[in-house]
Design a protein around this nucleic acid. Structure first.
Lengths: 217, 217
DNA sequence: AATATGAATGAATACTCATTCATTTTGTGG
DNA sequence: CCACAAAATGAATGAGTATTCATTCATATT
């Protein structure tokens, strides 16, 4: 059968056209295909056949590499969480050393196209939509969230001490900022036409300026 | 069969014990059962059998009253959207006439137990999780969102004019506030242990005080 | 070249679930 | 009390899908 080559062309990871890839390459390829499928068809309508087809591979391939659909989905969530975390960490490391600069950089990151992308957001919300009924999803999301919360909280704490801002706690600001980006993502998902990155960033910025006037003017 | 009585006891709508209800009563009962099922099992794992069982009725009952599962789900979303809207409208009407009081009342409403309830939030997020892939869900969500946005925007506009607040637009504040409640809901869904209504309300209040100092002190 | 290894295939299996419909039950107006 | 219409049942159907596995194929090793 010379069909293999044709099928490979449709594959998600166009890397090598070798018929056999390493275990890890295939797993990554299948996770990428899963993300595409979930964004396109939703988590409920994504079948293993869809994923295999998107990857340009055969029916049984997912079970071969992930043993079960449940496993594939868990690892997919883990993957997008890890992907976000790496952007978060990089942003934190690359921003100017002042806490206020780092905080602003993180907020901007949440709204830049590589993060605030309708395809990616659809996948996040697909998993969040099952958080209540799938304990594994909740645990993964909760663990990562905790990390961001701690990091942002620490930055806010520093800023508050620097500016001698009374009347406000770091946790309050952290909650406000974190929830704001999640909510802005939802508004983009629900009303893509009415969404504008700059306007969204204004919302965040308006808060920063208002609570930390000495730092953001 | 005397089983009917037993089954009815398990039903969601314990209203009349009549075996046959009016068309509208049954539809409401089935929608209520759907909400319970989605909150418990997730939207992807909720079967028509589950819904029928939750309602204490028979297998084919949903198709009898809603023709299809798709229909049932659409009407369920419509129902929770209408339910939220009625709370929104009531809150708006009952609050003191000043724009600032109305705005605060709306924000408090979003966090009060009858709205910010993990069961209800799970259903909202379940539908939001499919917004990208199910156009009907998007249209319904978008239409309602538009309404809240307009109402809140108008209040903010009034407040801005009253306080002569320069440097900020009504839309910016509207975006910030709306997204904040959505995000706080998500944090409750993902981390129920770490969530506290008062702390969440502090986040909202901190923003209001910061941008509209003359109104919220 | 011959053989061994494990990746990949895809048809077959077992099962779930939305939908249908023949039958039964229930309420109502004559 | 009867007959009719409406409501409800639940077994049967069939489409769809996760999973299995015997077989094929590509690559590495001898």
């Amino acid at each position: 059968m010379a069909v293999a080559a044709v099928k490979n062309a449709a594959g998600t990871a166009g890397k090598s056209s070798r018929r056999t890839a390493t275990r890890e390459e295939r797993r990554q390829q299948l996770i990428a295909a899963t993300i595409k499928c979930i964004a396109k068809k939703g988590i409920g309508s994504t079948t293993l056949g869809d994923v295999a087809q998107e990857a340009g591979l055969s029916q049984g391939i997912v079970n071969l590499h992930f043993a079960s659909k449940e496993n594939l989905f868990n690892e997919t969530l883990q993957f997008i969480a890890e992907d976000y975390k790496s952007q978060f960490d990089t942003t934190l490391a690359k921003a100017a050393p002042e806490a206020s600069a780092k905080l602003l950089a993180l907020m901007e990151m949440d709204l830049k196209p590589s993060v605030c992308d309708r395809q990616k957001l659809a996948v996040w919300f697909a998993f969040w939509g099952e958080v209540k009924s799938v304990p594994t999803y909740q645990k993964i999301c909760e663990a990562y969230d905790r990390g961001y919360d701690d990091a942002i909280n620490e930055l806010c704490q520093t800023i508050i001490e620097q500016g001698k801002y009374g009347n406000i706690t770091a946790q309050t600001v952290t909650d406000a900022l974190s929830s704001m980006t999640d909510g802005l993502w939802l508004s983009y998902l629900v009303s893509p036409r009415g969404f504008d990155r700059d306007v969204a960033m204004d919302a965040v910025y308006s808060y920063l300026r208002a609570v930390f006037p000495d730092h953001y003017e």
